[in-house]
Design a binder for these strands. Structure first.
Length: 137
RNA sequence: UCAGACGGUCGGAUGGCCGCCUUCCGGGUGCCGCAAGGUCCGGGGGGAGGAAAGUCCGGGCUCCACGGAAACACGGUGCCGGGUAACGCCCGGCGGGGGCGACCCCAGGGAAAGUGCCACAGAAAGCAAACCGCCCGCCGAAGCUUCGGCGAAGGCGGGUAAGGGUGAAAGGGUGCGGUAAGAGCGCACCGCGUCCCCGGUGACGGGGGCGGCACGGCAAACCCCACCGGGAGCAAGACCAAAUAGGGACGGUGCGCCGGGGUUUCCCCGGCAGGCGGGUUUUCGCGCCGCCGUCCGGGUCGGUCGCGCGAGGUGUCCGGCAACGGGCGUCCCAGAUGACUGGCCCUCCCCCGCUUCGGCGGGGACAGAACCCGGCUUACAGGCCGUCUGACACA
RNA sequence: CGGAGCGUGGCGCAGUCUGGUAGCGCACUACACUGGGGGUGUAGGGGUCGUAGGUUCAAAUCCUAUCGCUCCGA
């Protein structure tokens, strides 16, 4: 099955992910990872995958920051449901290169970052990216 | 045709695939829920701006304060008339300045209410005064002499402000007359002050009389005058409401000693003993103290509302020079909350670079709603429309 | 959302309130002392006062707008 992706919302959640110091720097993005209580049956309500986005003012003005976050979100929606290991929290950080980098390169940046951080898994649905998961029409 | 002035307007176009937020309709009773509803499936509608920006003003709305109100302090505004819910905004005028012109710019009340400042230079910087000068009178070494005197330089006394010089600014300006030299001393014009008349709602303008000039500049120096302003802000504010700790009430149960009190099976107060806590330990002093259950109130995380029909958009007619106002018709048009409005692609349109003129490559101005509205200010690729001015050419 | 402060030589700061001369320390350059370095001394260079308008005879200073940075409260 494809797990639902929830959003990290609180500052404390972001800090907890950053506190693990596990990160991978790619040209188009930076990825931080933290394993949360996946094996713990008591926290079953927590979604298996949670993602947060960070785009600081260094990237540019409000329009540039919005655009960087939207491109990162689009890449995450394409890659994460099928390739990310369950039971992890992710923080995706935007850089200035996020704006200009071709979208395909951005996606491969995310894939290699997942592998490097040992948070990747085999694709469940080997179908085309534009037709992911059982949500077909 | 070229150069220019002003006003308005648009803010790449079209389509495909996959998503997101919101709203409406239908389905379904699989899951959650007593229910309303949520979730799920299908379909329809809507989904950033002219500045959404900066947060410089004005309001609505909400809470707080306050007997009505006024005054002081503080802050703001500052020619006149109008528009507006209101404004520091807008429109139309007035005055001043700039431009051949269309047109543009101006914090533009008061300096005879008072205080203060005007560096350097200069004699003198605000009250009149006089450095070099000019002129008159007296004295007068040299010199001249018809022997009476005359008299350069200089001295003393007085008149004057034309000229020189300093300065941003030197006590009306120019011209003529006048005078020993000069001076509004007199006259003409201009300026200034004041009074009257006329036009205008008014700022103000025009005309006439009088005054011979007194009244330098700075109020974006203090200040005076007139007018305006209660404070805070949607994280305002309202409602629902976990877990834990603490508060209160009730019930059950328990209650080491002494003293006091009361409404006397019990409750309250004080002391001792006991337990717990941290301060290294003892002494010591400090803080807290029965257990279980139910309920109540306040309230944090969280959630719901506020939160999208409005000083609304648009078309047309009428009034008004205009800002704007009124009538009628028509439309419903973003509501997120770690926050949607997106990702990829085809064709066309612009811009830039290269070019073998066939094309190839790159790019799409400034910029992202957060309670709402009216303004102001600032940023902005390129395009379109209208009115007007000057020059040249042609007819 | 509300409020406060700061932009001055390469660096860190005075001067701004009360308008007329932009000054201090370190750094820099040259020379001297030393065999050389360090150090000391002497002399010297260097500033659109964030930007743009305005007031004034005159603006770093006063007024308005704007840009950037820092901080505080909810």
């Amino acid at each position: 099955m494809v797990p639902d992706i929830a959003r990290l919302k609180r500052r404390s959640e972001f800090l907890r992910v950053a506190g693990t110091r596990r990160k991978w720097v790619a040209p188009g993005l930076i990825l931080q990872v933290r394993r949360h209580g996946a094996g713990n049956a008591a926290r079953r309500e927590e979604p298996a995958l949670r993602v947060g986005f960070t785009v600081s003012r260094k990237v540019g003005n409000a329009v540039a920051r919005n655009r960087a976050r939207r491109r990162l979100r689009a890449a995450v929606e394409q890659v994460m449901p099928v390739q990310a290991k369950e039971g992890h929290d992710f923080v995706v950080i935007g850089r200035q290169a996020t704006l200009k980098r071709p979208f395909a390169a951005l996606v491969s940046d995310l894939r290699t970052a997942l592998k490097r951080l040992d948070a990747s898994r085999d694709e469940i649905a080997p179908a085309a990216p534009d037709n992911p998961a059982p949500r077909a029409r």
